[in-house]
Amino acid sequence: MRLLLVEDDHMIGEAVQELLRAESHAVDWVPDGNQADAALLAQRYDLVLLDLGLPGRDGLQVLRALRARHDRTPVLITTARDAVAQRVQGLDAGADDYLLKPYDLDELLARIRALARRAGGHSDEAYACGEVWLNPVTRQATLRGQPVQLSGREWAVLLPLLARPGAVLSRAQLEDKLYGWGEEISSNAVEVYIHGLRKKLGADVITTVRGLGYMLACQPAP
């Protein structure tokens, strides 16, 4: 997934960015509300982690502007504002979830996964397509019931394909899930991870659609 992290505390921002990248998310980090608003206008994100007490423009203003544009990108507010009235205000402004600082990093990851499942229309925790099965929460993958070890980048490529079986995703769309701003992108990165996935899951599982991109060749499991 590609995430926007809006956090003005440098230590928290660095720690969370490092954590999310270790989980194979592409992360763009901005430290103030004006930059957040500009980023949301310029780039589509799978999820936004939004602090409220920001320089430039308050987090609630960023959120209200986002929703005023009818942009339904999931937003997880992360803030030290712990009054019930403030939490209600944030949720009423259009936030999808609310996490108080200081928060446990494992809980942050769990809430991100939950919001991603909800946004994708998946109420359960697993993605299945034919004989391939993934559980994003436990990071388990199986092929015909047998466990398969995937690298973090292989996960990042396979998950969007598995979430939309039959849809063709371009190389640029898959790169967008792998890299944030300022990260060096190898010209054949996606091809390398696709090759690794085919070795582990079968040569015919991921189909190359010439000139367009990649898709899963299997049918969604019933």
Score class of each variant (00 low, 15 high):
Leu47Phe: 09
Thr78Ala: 10
Leu109Met: 07
Val157Trp: 01
Val88Thr: 10
Leu158Val: 12
Ala68Ser: 15
Asp8Tyr: 03
Thr78Gly: 03
Asp46Ile: 09
Asp106Trp: 04
Leu40Ser: 03
Gly90Ala: 12
Val88Trp: 01
Leu143Ile: 04
Asp124Gly: 15
Leu76Pro: 08
Gly94Pro: 11
Leu3Asp: 09
Thr79Ile: 08
Val75Gln: 11
Leu52Glu: 05
Gly94Asn: 12
Val48Ile: 15
Pro220Asp: 12
Ala83Asn: 12
Thr79Glu: 07
Leu63Asn: 11
Arg69His: 13
Leu197Arg: 02
Pro55Thr: 05
Ala116Trp: 09
Trp29Cys: 07
Trp29Thr: 12
Gln86Asn: 09
Ala126Ile: 00
Gly59Thr: 06
Val132Met: 07
Glu191Met: 08
Asn34Asp: 09
Arg111Phe: 14
Ile206Lys: 10
Ala93Glu: 06
Ser187Met: 09
Leu162His: 04
Gly53Met: 15
Arg118Phe: 08
Ala126Gln: 07
Asp96Gln: 13
Gly13Ile: 05
Arg153Glu: 13
Gly196Val: 11
Val132Ala: 08
Gln35Met: 03
Gln86Phe: 10
Asp71Asn: 14
Gly166Glu: 12
Arg171Leu: 00
Lys177Ser: 12
Arg87Val: 07
His70Asp: 04
Val168Trp: 06
Gln89Ser: 15
Lys177His: 14
Gly59Asp: 05
Asp96Trp: 11
Arg69Gly: 10
Ala217Gly: 15
Ala39Trp: 03
Leu216Met: 14
Gly145Val: 10
Ala116Asp: 12
Arg153Val: 09
Glu175Lys: 12
Asp58Leu: 06
Trp133Asp: 03
Leu150Asp: 05
Leu99His: 08
Gly94Glu: 11
Ala85Asp: 15
Leu134Arg: 00
His25Gly: 00
Val148Ile: 10
Glu107Ala: 00
Leu47Asp: 01
Arg117Ile: 05
Gly121Cys: 06
Ala217Lys: 13
Ile185Thr: 09
Gln140Pro: 00
Val192Phe: 08
Ser24Phe: 14
Gly90Arg: 05
Ala203Phe: 08
Glu183Leu: 06
Val168Ala: 09
Leu174Arg: 12
Asp106Thr: 04
Tyr98Ile: 10
Leu91Asn: 06
His10Gln: 06
Leu158Thr: 08
Ala65Leu: 08
Glu18Asp: 12
Cys129Ala: 13
Val30Leu: 13
Glu18Trp: 01
Arg87Tyr: 01
His195Pro: 01
Gly33Glu: 03
Gly56His: 03
Arg69Ala: 14
Glu175Ile: 05
Ser151Glu: 02
Pro102Arg: 07
Ala15Arg: 13
Pro147Leu: 04
Thr142Lys: 04
Leu162Lys: 00
Thr207His: 11
Met1Asn: 01
Val75Thr: 14
Leu4Pro: 03
Ala38Met: 01
Met215Thr: 13
Ala26Arg: 02
Leu40Tyr: 06
Ser186Asn: 06
Asp71Met: 10
